[in-house]
Design a protein around this nucleic acid. Structure first.
Length: 811
DNA sequence: GACGTTGAGATTTTT
DNA sequence: TCTCAACGTC
C-alpha cells in the first residue's frame, strides 16, 4: 500500500487557520507542536490515521486532539470516546487531559477496550443476556474454569492442556467466532469446540465472563441491536484509538460498530506498524491498512520527528527496521545531533556479560545517572537470572518487572474468592478455591461427589451442597453457613468493613498469622484493604465525589459546560455505571471485584527506590530510559529460534529489536555472548543477524570483533563469578520490594439536604417504578452523580443512580 | 492434609 | 538447570 505524500500536509498547509485561536481555545494548547503534530491534532472531521513513530509525542497528540476538539466546540466530553490497551495509558491520557482543559474527565468514555466493554455490559446486562451481577474471570481464573470443564467431560488433560484450550477459546472469540461458527475438520477440533461450548455454558451458569467475552458480547449486542447501535453512534461523534497496530479482529469490528466506514463519526487512529509486537497474541497490524482502505482515509499523518533519542540510536533503529518488507514506511529523525555511538560488547559467557553490564552500569551511576534511568532488556525472562545473580552479589539494587502482580497473588486471590462468594455464591471457581482454604476438613472426595451432584442437576456447587447431605453438622454445611453468615453480616457495611470482617470470619487472617512466613501475605491482605479504600475514593463511591452529568443520550452538553476551575480528581476514573433501564448501580463490593479482575494491579517500580530496571523487551514498550543495555543479541535468542523459520515471525522479532533500540535516550549498549547456559546446557551462539543490520559508523565495539575463548580477560570474570555465592542464597535482599501504595485518601462526608435529593430522606419510604416501595438507607454524591441505597425488601438492597432511577418519596 | 519425590517443559502476554 | 505442578506417602 502507498501511504506517501498524498495526504500529508505540506508546510504551507500547516499554518493554523486564523480562527484557530478563538477565545475558547485555551492559550498554549497548540503551542510547541511541530507541523506534523499540529496537522494531526487539527485534522478535519473525517477519518484520520496517524503513524506515530517511537518517541514522536503520540500521547501528546492524542490528548491535545481531544482537548482541541472540545475547546473548538467540535466535541463534548459526552460524545467522544478514546480507547487504549492498558490501564496505564488510559490513566495517563486522563491525567494529561485534565491538566490541559478545565474539564472534569470523570464519566467520559476514556478507557481500555475491556474497561469500556465492561461498562457497556453493566449498563445493558439484560440485553446482553448476562446476569446482573456478572463477574469477570482473569487469565488465571479462565484457565482454572477451562480445566474444570475438561475434567468434567472426562477428557485427557494431556491431549487437552487447559492452558492451550483456554488459548484456543480466546483465539476463537477474538476472531468473533462462537462454537457453532467454527469449522470442525478433525476429531481434535471437534473436541475442542465441544469444550468451548461446555465452557460457555458453565460461564453462563456461574455468571462469569472472561476477557474475550467482554469484547465479543459487547460487539454482538451492538451488531444485533440496531436501535442500541444507532443510539451509540449518535452519541459518539469522535472515536480515538491508541496503539491501533495492536488491535485484533474483534476489536476492530467492535470499533466499526461505533463508527462504521462512511458514517459521520470520525475515527482517529494512532499507531505504529513498526512497533507491532503482539501478533502472537492475535494483534493484527493489517487492521491499519484495512482501516485506511475501508474508511477511505485521506488524512494520513506521519509523526517522524523523534524527541527521545540521539541520532546514532535512531540511525540504528531506522537501518534495522528497513530490513522489514511489510511496512507502511516511516523514518525517524531528530534534531538532537548524533550523540554517542551505540556501544557493542561481545562477552565470552552470559556470566561475563552480566558482570560487564554491571560494571558499566555502576560507572554510569557514578557519573550521576540515576539507577532507575538504566534499563537492562532481554528477549526472554529466563535471561534475567544471570543478571540478577550478578547484581545481587555486587549488592546493586535492581527491580525485575513482570511476574506476579498484586491481584494475582495467592492470598489476595483467596480473599477475593470469599468476597465473590458474598456477591455470587454460584461462582464455582471461587467456591473451589476457598471451600477448603483455610483447611476445614473438606477433602477431594467430598468435592468430587459435590461436583457430580452439581453436574447431574445443572446447578452450582453451592446449590448442590444439600444434595450430598451437606447440611447441618457436616463440614460442607459449615462452609455454606460461613458464606451465608458473611453475606448477612456484611449488609450495610462499607467496603473496608466488609473485607476486614471477611478476613477475620473466613479464618484467612488467623491462618496467615499462624504461618511462619505469613507476614508478607498478611501485609498484602492489608494492602487489599488499602486498594479497596483507594478504589472507593477514586471510582466515585466516595461521599463527596463530583462529576459532570453524563447521560446516556449524550445530550445536555454544550462547550460552555467546560467550566474553568472545576474540581478534578487526581487519578480520574469512571463513575459507577448505572443500569440503563432501572438506574441501579453496582454495590461498591461488586464494582471493586470487577476492578480487581480488570486491573491486575501495578508491579511498577516504586518511586524513591533507585534501582536498576530489568525487564523483557515487550515489557519495555512505551517506556524510555537514559541508558539501555540490550542483552543476548544472539541467533536463536534474539531473534528467537521459534521465529526463525517463519518470515512474519522474523519480522516481528525485528520490530521487537526496533522497540528495544528506541527505548534509549542517550546511551545504548548492545551485547551478546559466545556461550550461554540455557536449559541446563551450554549453548554456543553466534551473534544475532540484527547486529549486521546496524550501520557500522554508528557503532563502537568495546571488544575486539573476534575474541577467542579462554582469554585472560574471560578467565578473570569467570573466577570472579565463581568466588561469588550461587543464586540460591539470594532471597529477597538486593531486590527492591514493592512498597505499599499511599493509604487511601480519607474524605469527609459533605452535608446533604433533603432538597438536593428531590425531597428524599434517609429512613423514609421511596417508590421505584420497577422495584416498588422501599426504605431509603443512604444518600450520597451530588448532582448527576447522586446515588441512593434503598432496601426494597423482596428485591433486596440496591444502589441507584438518581439521575437515571426515578425515585419518589412516599409518606 | 502436609510433606517429599518425580517429571515435563522452559518466548513474548497490555486485558 | 531450574521451576512448577502433579502424584504418592505418612
Amino acid at each position: 500500500m502507498n501511504l506517501q505524500p498524498r495526504a500529508l500536509h505540506s508546510a504551507a498547509d500547516d499554518a493554523p487557520p486564523p480562527d484557530l485561536f478563538t477565545p475558547a481555545a485555551p492559550r498554549g494548547l497548540l503551542e510547541g507542536l511541530n507541523p506534523e503534530q499540529l496537522a494531526a491534532v487539527t485534522a478535519g472531521q473525517a477519518p484520520a490515521l496517524i503513524l506515530a513513530g517511537a518517541g514522536s509525542g503520540k500521547t501528546r497528540v492524542l490528548t491535545t486532539r481531544i482537548a482541541w476538539l472540545m475547546s473548538q466546540g467540535l466535541a463534548t466530553p459526552a460524545n467522544l470516546m478514546a480507547v487504549t490497551f492498558t490501564n496505564k495509558a488510559a490513566k495517563e491520557m486522563l491525567t494529561r487531559l485534565s491538566a490541559m482543559l478545565p474539564v472534569n474527565v470523570r464519566g467520559m468514555w476514556i478507557g481500555t477496550f475491556h474497561g469500556l466493554c465492561h461498562r457497556f455490559l453493566r449498563a445493558h446486562w439484560k440485553l446482553a443476556g448476562l446476569p446482573q451481577g456478572f463477574q469477570i474471570l482473569d487469565a488465571g481464573d479462565t484457565v482454572a474454569a477451562v480445566k474444570r470443564v475438561i475434567k468434567g467431560m472426562k477428557l485427557d488433560e494431556e491431549r487437552f492442556v487447559p492452558k492451550q484450550v483456554a488459548w484456543f477459546i480466546a483465539g476463537a472469540k477474538e476472531d468473533g467466532l462462537r462454537p457453532q461458527d467454527m469449522e470442525q475438520r478433525d476429531e481434535q477440533t471437534r473436541r475442542l469446540v465441544s469444550i468451548y461450548q461446555a465452557y460457555e455454558d458453565q460461564c453462563l451458569r456461574e455468571g462469569v465472563v472472561d476477557f474475550a467475552e467482554l469484547m465479543l458480547r459487547s460487539y454482538e449486542l451492538l451488531r444485533d441491536n440496531a436501535e442500541l447501535r444507532a443510539h451509540y453512534q449518535r452519541r459518539f461523534q469522535h472515536v480515538l484509538v491508541d496503539e491501533f497496530q495492536d488491535t485484533n479482529r474483534l476489536q476492530y469490528a467492535w470499533l466499526k460498530m461505533f463508527a462504521p466506514p462512511g458514517s459521520q463519526q470520525c475515527v482517529f487512529a494512532v499507531g505504529d506498524d513498526d512497533q507491532s509486537i503482539y501478533a502472537f497474541r492475535g494483534a493484527r497490524v493489517g487492521n491499519m491498512a484495512d482501516f485506511e482502505r475501508e474508511y477511505r482515509v485521506r488524512q494520513v499523518v506521519k509523526l517522524e520527528q523523534n524527541y527521545r533519542s540521539f541520532g546514532n540510536i535512531l540511525d540504528c533503529a531506522n537501518a534495522l527496521i528497513s530490513h522489514n518488507k511489510s511496512r507502511l514506511g516511516k523514518n525517524l529523525r531528530t534534531e538532537a545531533g548524533p550523540g554517542e555511538p551505540v556501544r557493542v560488547n561481545e562477552a565470552a559467557s552470559d556470566y561475563a556479560e552480566a558482570q560487564w553490564l554491571l560494571e558499566e552500569a555502576q560507572a554510569l551511576h557514578r557519573q550521576g545517572l540515576a539507577r532507575s534511568q538504566i534499563a537492562v532488556l532481554y528477549r526472554s525472562n529466563a535471561q534475567s537470572r544471570v543478571v540478577e545473580s550478578a547484581l545481587f552479589n555486587a549488592g546493586i539494587p535492581y527491580r525485575v518487572y513482570g511476574g506476579l502482580r498484586f491481584f494475582e497473588r495467592a492470598e489476595v486471590k483467596h480473599a477475593l474468592a470469599y468476597l465473590r462468594l458474598i456477591e455470587n455464591a454460584n461462582d464455582d471457581t471461587s467456591f473451589l478455591r476457598v471451600v477448603n482454604f483455610p483447611a476445614r476438613g473438606i477433602g477431594a472426595r467430598t468435592i468430587e461427589q459435590l461436583q457430580d451432584a452439581a453436574r447431574a442437576s445443572g446447578r452450582s456447587l453451592y446449590q448442590s451442597v444439600g444434595a450430598v447431605g451437606g447440611r447441618g453438622g457436616s463440614s460442607l454445611g459449615a462452609f455454606v453457613a460461613l458464606v451465608e453468615g458473611l453475606r448477612q453480616a456484611t449488609v450495610g457495611l462499607t467496603l473496608r468493613e466488609i473485607i476486614e470482617h471477611m478476613l477475620h470470619a473466613s479464618g484467612l487472617q488467623d491462618f496467615y498469622r499462624a504461618e511462619k512466613e505469613g507476614a508478607d501475605r498478611l501485609e498484602n491482605l492489608d494492602e487489599l484493604i488499602n486498594a479497596a479504600e483507594a478504589f472507593v475514593t477514586q471510582e466515585g463511591f466516595g461521599k463527596d465525589a463530583v462529576a459532570l452529568p453524563v447521560d446516556e443520550s449524550g445530550a445536555g452538553y454544550a462547550p460552555g459546560d467546560l467550566a474553568p476551575g472545576l474540581p478534578v480528581a487526581p487519578a480520574p476514573a469512571a463513575t459507577p455505571v448505572p443500569d440503563a433501564e432501572t438506574g441501579e448501580i453496582m454495590s461498591p463490593l461488586a464494582a471493586f471485584l470487577s476492578h480487581a479482575s480488570l486491573e491486575a494491579g501495578d508491579n511498577q517500580a516504586q518511586a524513591g527506590q533507585d534501582a536498576l530496571q530489568l525487564m523483557t523487551v515487550h515489557a519495555a514498550k512505551g517506556l524510555e530510559f537514559d541508558a539501555v543495555f540490550l542483552t543476548g543479541l544472539e541467533e536463536g535468542l534474539f531473534p528467537h529460534e521459534n521465529a526463525l523459520s517463519d518470515p512474519d515471525g522474523l519480522e516481528e522479532e525485528r520490530r521487537l529489536m526496533y522497540v528495544a533500540i528506541t527505548r534509549a535516550r542517550q546511551r545504548l549498549y548492545i551485547s551478546f555472548c559466545q556461550t550461554r547456559m540455557l536449559h541446563g546446557q551450554t549453548r554456543y551462539n553466534i551473534k544475532s543477524r540484527f547486529l549486521e543490520e546496524l550501520p557500522e559508523p554508528c557503532l563502537k565495539w568495546l571488544t575486539p570483533r573476534h575474541q577467542g575463548f579462554g582469554s585472560g580477560f574471560e578467565r578473570g570474570y569467570q573466577q570472579a563469578w565463581e568466588r561469588g555465592s550461587g543464586l540460591k542464597s539470594m532471597v529477597g535482599a538486593g531486590r527492591v520490594e514493592p512498597q505499599a501504595p499511599p493509604a487511601a485518601l480519607q474524605k469527609s462526608a459533605a452535608a446533604k439536604t433533603g432538597a438536593e435529593f428531590g425531597g428524599l430522606r434517609v429512613g423514609k419510604g421511596v417508590f421505584h417504578t420497577k422495584f416498588g416501595e422501599g426504605v431509603l438507607l443512604t444518600l450520597e454524591g451530588s448532582g448527576a452523580d447522586a446515588r441512593a441505597q434503598v432496601n426494597f425488601g423482596r428485591h433486596g438492597i440496591k444502589w441507584l443512580a438518581l439521575s437515571v432511577a426515578k425515585l419518589t418519596p412516599i409518606d
